[in-house]
Design a protein around this nucleic acid. Structure first.
Lengths: 181, 181
DNA sequence: AAGGACATGTAACACGTTACATGATTTT
DNA sequence: AAAATCATGTAACGTGTTACATGTCCTT
């Protein structure tokens, strides 16, 4: 469960409840998970079992009880060790490429429409990402200039990916128009 | 199970056994799945249940029995319908970005090493992709010039992705060197 | 009156991976 | 003698998603 490290990251910023984590994860560009309850709450319980976090129960008047989690010394050490561990290669899954690979069964206009649909889909993703980016600015820790820079770079990575994808799709469509229609 | 369409694609090229599919899938750039037995054999059984493929048993002397699957008329129709269906957005999961987002806990040289590790990892992926590309050329259907073009475009998409990623990592490292060390 | 925010958790399901199981033939 | 190729299948496990379950308070 890699999401545990994402959780540790946010908790190392400041103590939070599962509910807080959910909100923060869904509105952050530096986190892939949809922030579903199942993963968050079970991961928190497991992190506590492993002694990487501890929880305090906060009673509130007129609102439900909150379980606020804080990273332990051991948790900080484990998180730092993970930070230093060799990064994995990114996982890219583009089902559209499977469609395109067999696209020779389509005629020129069908293929063209498929590419336009893809361009639109990428455009939508870009817009959504920009939305998340806006909301994400509020939760960017930005404790130092360097930390702010790193978070910006993360967002730029994602925007760059979609822009790259868009250019590729456009070029593909144009070349198909020119040479195969 | 989206892998069913990838399987239908290959079978629509030519009839194959599960074993053939496995080989072809692992050595093709236009297919993401690792080609593990569980998915392939169970998908084939399900495709047959749905009437999209049928199988013939081929007895061979001195070699195990082969179950060769062929796409039915219904299978071709279903596949074409899927080809025309609106493409999904690509799914990108880069755990390294989670590491980088919290990288302000590291000092300049640790962060630098992390980025170099990532660049190396991307370099390795690029090399592996080029290997797959070489082997993949043999299984490219390339029944028409356009089909060959489409398969090349699929491979180029992936190479482009890694190159884009590499440039981003390099730029990040250089800017960190310049401004935050 | 309805819907959303606050808050924690569980159940069911989908997908993907590795590893296991079997067994003959061929190559190193 | 060991390992790879051919060939089909199953089991166990990890991870991620949606949906369900419960209940109060506040806003529209």
């Amino acid at each position: 469960m890699d999401i545990k490290y994402a959780i540790l990251g946010f908790l190392s910023w400041k103590p939070m409840s599962g509910y807080d984590l959910k909100k923060v994860m869904t509105s952050s560009t530096s986190c892939y998970w949809t922030g579903n309850n199942n993963q968050i709450y079970t991961s928190l319980i497991q992190l506590q079992k492993e002694g990487l976090v501890f929880s305090e129960i906060q009673n509130q008047e007129k609102l439900p009880v909150r379980k606020v989690y804080t990273v332990t010394e051991k948790g900080f050490e484990g998180f730092r060790a993970w930070l230093l561990s060799p990064p994995e290669a990114p996982v890219l899954r583009n089902f559209f490429l499977v469609q395109l690979a067999w696209g020779d069964r389509l005629d020129a206009s069908e293929l063209r429409n498929l590419l336009i649909s893809y361009e639109n889909e990428i455009g939508t993703q870009l817009m959504m990402l920009n939305e998340t980016k806006k909301r994400g600015l509020l939760i960017n820790p930005a404790r130092t200039a360097r930390e702010k820079y790193l978070w910006d770079r993360v967002t730029e990575n994602q925007i760059g990916f979609y822009e790259n994808e868009f250019r590729w799709a456009q070029k593909t469509r144009e070349e198909l128009d020119k040479s195969y229609s």
